[in-house]
Amino acid sequence: KLKCQHCNHLFATKPELLFYKGKMFLFCGKNCSDEYKKKN
């Protein structure tokens, strides 16, 4: 199981990947990825 970088939920589906500031982040979906980008 993977943990979403934004909402901290565990998920087993294909993660949404975001490469940001030289790091890779995993998200449970596009919505969390977009929210994370807005906040950072």
Rank of each mutant, 00 (worst) to 15 (best):
residue 1 K to G: 03
residue 1 K to L: 02
residue 1 K to A: 02
residue 1 K to R: 02
residue 1 K to Q: 03
residue 2 L to E: 15
residue 2 L to P: 08
residue 2 L to M: 14
residue 2 L to V: 13
residue 2 L to H: 05
residue 3 K to G: 08
residue 3 K to I: 06
residue 3 K to S: 13
residue 4 C to K: 01
residue 4 C to Y: 01
residue 4 C to V: 01
residue 4 C to R: 00
residue 4 C to L: 01
residue 4 C to M: 00
residue 4 C to G: 00
residue 4 C to H: 01
residue 4 C to P: 01
residue 4 C to A: 01
residue 5 Q to V: 08
residue 5 Q to L: 06
residue 5 Q to T: 06
residue 5 Q to S: 03
residue 5 Q to I: 04
residue 5 Q to M: 07
residue 5 Q to D: 02
residue 6 H to V: 08
residue 6 H to F: 05
residue 6 H to L: 06
residue 6 H to T: 08
residue 6 H to C: 10
residue 6 H to I: 04
residue 6 H to M: 14
residue 6 H to W: 07
residue 6 H to D: 07
residue 6 H to A: 10
residue 7 C to G: 02
residue 7 C to P: 00
residue 7 C to D: 06
residue 8 N to L: 12
residue 8 N to E: 13
residue 8 N to P: 05
residue 8 N to H: 06
residue 9 H to R: 14
residue 9 H to V: 14
residue 9 H to W: 08
residue 9 H to C: 08
residue 9 H to S: 11
residue 9 H to Q: 14
residue 10 L to R: 15
residue 10 L to S: 09
residue 10 L to P: 14
residue 10 L to W: 13
residue 10 L to A: 14
residue 10 L to C: 10
residue 10 L to F: 15
residue 10 L to K: 13
residue 10 L to E: 15
residue 10 L to M: 09
residue 10 L to H: 12
residue 11 F to P: 10
residue 11 F to L: 05
residue 11 F to W: 03
residue 11 F to D: 02
residue 11 F to S: 07
residue 11 F to K: 05
residue 11 F to C: 07
residue 12 A to N: 03
residue 12 A to Q: 10
residue 12 A to E: 10
residue 13 T to L: 04
residue 13 T to M: 06
residue 13 T to V: 07
residue 13 T to W: 04
residue 14 K to M: 02
residue 14 K to T: 11
residue 14 K to L: 07
residue 14 K to Q: 06
residue 15 P to G: 04
residue 15 P to R: 06
residue 15 P to D: 11
residue 15 P to T: 05
residue 15 P to Q: 06
residue 15 P to L: 01
residue 15 P to A: 08
residue 15 P to V: 02
residue 16 E to M: 05
residue 16 E to N: 02
residue 16 E to W: 05
residue 16 E to D: 04
residue 16 E to T: 10
residue 16 E to P: 02
residue 16 E to R: 07
residue 16 E to Q: 11
residue 17 L to D: 10
residue 17 L to T: 15
residue 17 L to K: 15
residue 17 L to R: 15
residue 18 L to C: 06
residue 18 L to E: 06
residue 18 L to T: 08
residue 18 L to V: 12
residue 19 F to Y: 10
residue 19 F to C: 05
residue 19 F to E: 15
residue 19 F to R: 15
residue 19 F to W: 12
residue 19 F to T: 11
residue 19 F to P: 15
residue 20 Y to E: 14
residue 20 Y to A: 14
residue 20 Y to P: 02
residue 20 Y to H: 08
residue 20 Y to S: 13
residue 21 K to Q: 11
residue 21 K to A: 13
residue 21 K to C: 10
residue 21 K to E: 13
residue 21 K to T: 11
residue 21 K to V: 04
residue 21 K to F: 11
residue 22 G to S: 10
residue 22 G to A: 09
residue 22 G to Q: 12
residue 22 G to R: 06
residue 22 G to L: 03
residue 22 G to T: 09
residue 23 K to E: 15
residue 23 K to Y: 03
residue 23 K to F: 04
residue 23 K to H: 10
residue 23 K to G: 09
residue 23 K to S: 09
residue 24 M to V: 04
residue 24 M to A: 08
residue 24 M to R: 15
residue 24 M to I: 15
residue 25 F to K: 09
residue 25 F to Q: 11
residue 25 F to R: 14
residue 25 F to H: 06
residue 25 F to C: 12
residue 25 F to G: 11
residue 25 F to L: 14
residue 25 F to V: 12
residue 25 F to P: 04
residue 26 L to N: 15
residue 27 F to P: 01
residue 27 F to E: 01
residue 27 F to R: 00
residue 27 F to M: 09
residue 27 F to C: 11
residue 27 F to D: 01
residue 27 F to Y: 10
residue 28 C to H: 01
residue 28 C to W: 00
residue 28 C to E: 01
residue 28 C to N: 02
residue 28 C to A: 00
residue 29 G to M: 08
residue 29 G to K: 13
residue 29 G to E: 05
residue 29 G to D: 02
residue 29 G to L: 02
residue 29 G to T: 05
residue 29 G to C: 07
residue 29 G to Q: 07
residue 30 K to I: 13
residue 30 K to V: 10
residue 30 K to H: 09
residue 30 K to T: 06
residue 30 K to M: 09
residue 31 N to P: 12
residue 31 N to Q: 10
residue 31 N to Y: 05
residue 31 N to A: 08
residue 31 N to W: 09
residue 31 N to L: 09
residue 31 N to F: 03
residue 32 C to T: 00
residue 32 C to E: 00
residue 32 C to G: 00
residue 32 C to W: 00
residue 32 C to F: 12
residue 32 C to P: 00
residue 33 S to W: 06
residue 33 S to V: 09
residue 33 S to Y: 05
residue 33 S to H: 03
residue 33 S to M: 10
residue 33 S to Q: 13
residue 33 S to E: 11
residue 33 S to R: 09
residue 34 D to L: 05
residue 34 D to N: 01
residue 34 D to V: 12
residue 34 D to S: 09
residue 35 E to V: 08
residue 35 E to P: 02
residue 35 E to K: 08
residue 35 E to Q: 08
residue 35 E to S: 12
residue 36 Y to A: 08
residue 36 Y to W: 10
residue 36 Y to V: 04
residue 36 Y to F: 10
residue 36 Y to H: 12
residue 36 Y to R: 02
residue 38 K to S: 11
residue 38 K to W: 05
residue 38 K to R: 12
residue 38 K to P: 04
residue 38 K to G: 11
residue 38 K to L: 07
residue 39 K to C: 04
residue 39 K to Q: 10
residue 39 K to S: 13
residue 39 K to T: 09
residue 40 N to A: 12
residue 40 N to S: 14
residue 40 N to H: 06
